[in-house]
């Protein structure tokens, strides 16, 4: 087990190194002028050149690459051209909001996916099955920014059930920042007003994001449920005279959910992706918007740092999932 973990960690480092090399060269290949964009369209060329010199952007690309890699080794992702702060500091500010959104989305997609999957399996080939499958597949079939706007229109504007954009209502006093995750901080500080308000705000974006990841979870649940329901021990349980419901919830479900665990890692990755669009629609101050804003002005360090960080999170999530799986299923250990 220890060697397996070590090997995986080494590979992860290698992958992250590769990611940083790729992203460095992609952003530097773009024929653009971030400094010129930041200074505005009116600035004369001399000023643009001076700024470039100040920021070291007039050095040859290899020298810049060397600086960048050296920085990463020291845990330094550089200074964002736009915010003028260390990229690590920016990430620390924005990531918790994204993480919170992703966690809620995972909860929603797993809950929804498992429920739909079970319904599909138990009422296989009936209209319940068809409905729940169509419903879950519909989630991956619509552009998230469009679903987001429409849900906002319905639940906020027309029905008035849920608040509009942002993380909190304007006049709710935010909790003291501890982890940066608003809901968690509200609980830690006992700020229930902020907790309720934050919960009301996170529902729509998390639902939009989670819904888009529901289909694959519903699918896996359905398949493995069907698989488990045919196994001998279920027949035994039924033969013992246990009711259908007890069999499904007590016996079948527990065994059927193991494959779902593996899917969470991949889902996490796709949620981080979806966050890029969802956060813009819902005015969510997260890492996705940070990266989009960085891309719009080509803030090199911010793009590179943000991407590298997301790659790191993705790799970590998958590592954790694989390890969990290895613990659950000893055959995986090599």
């Amino acid at each position: 087990m220890g060697r397996y973990v070590l090997r995986r960690l080494l590979l992860m480092v290698l992958v992250l190194f590769g990611v940083s090399v790729i992203v460095f060269f992609i952003v530097h290949v773009i024929p653009a002028d971030p400094v010129g964009a930041l200074l505005g369209g009116n600035a004369p060329p001399q000023l643009v050149d001076q700024m470039k010199h100040q920021l070291g952007l007039d050095k040859p690309i290899w020298a810049q690459f060397g600086d960048y890699m050296l920085g990463i080794l020291h845990g330094n992702l550089g200074i964002s051209l736009k915010s003028n702060r260390p990229v690590t500091q920016d990430i620390a500010e924005y990531f918790p909001a994204t993480l919170e959104l992703a966690i809620f989305s995972i909860i929603i997609s797993v809950a929804l996916g498992v429920v739909l999957g079970i319904l599909s399996a138990v009422y296989r080939n009936s209209w319940v099955d068809h409905f729940s499958r169509i419903f879950s597949i519909l989630g991956v079939s619509m552009p998230v920014f469009w679903t987001g706007l429409i849900l906002l229109l319905i639940f906020y504007y027309i029905l008035g059930w849920l608040p509009g954009t942002g993380q909190l209502s304007l006049f709710t006093i935010p909790p003291h920042r501890i982890t940066g995750m608003l809901l968690l901080d509200s609980i830690l500080t006992g700020n229930w007003e902020a907790f309720r308000d934050g919960l009301a705000h996170i529902i729509l974006p998390a639902a939009v994001l989670g819904y888009s990841a529901t289909a694959s979870i519903a699918r896996i649940t359905r398949a493995s449920m069907l698989d488990v329901l045919r196994q001998d021990f279920i027949r035994t349980a039924k033969a013992k005279g246990l009711s259908g419901r007890v069999v499904i919830y007590r016996h079948a479900l527990k065994n059927a959910l193991i494959p779902v665990v593996t899917l969470i890692g991949l889902t996490f990755g796709s949620l981080l992706e979806g966050a890029v669009l969802t956060e813009t629609i819902f005015g969510w101050p997260g890492l996705g918007r940070y990266i989009v804003n960085a891309l719009l002005v080509l803030d090199y360090p911010a793009i590179m740092g943000g991407t590298l960080f997301i790659a790191l999170m993705y790799s970590l999530a998958n590592l954790i999932v694989d390890l969990t799986y290895a613990v659950l299923d000893p055959r995986m250990r090599i």
């Binding site: 290698l14 992958v15 024929p31 891309l295 790659a311 790799s315």
Partner: peptide, 22 residues
Amino acid sequence: MRITDMFLAFPSLVLAMAFAAA
């Protein structure tokens, strides 16, 4: 496979955005 892992770990929309911008 390591190259594949690298591209897999990339947030794909960000990668596509960077490419489209480039």
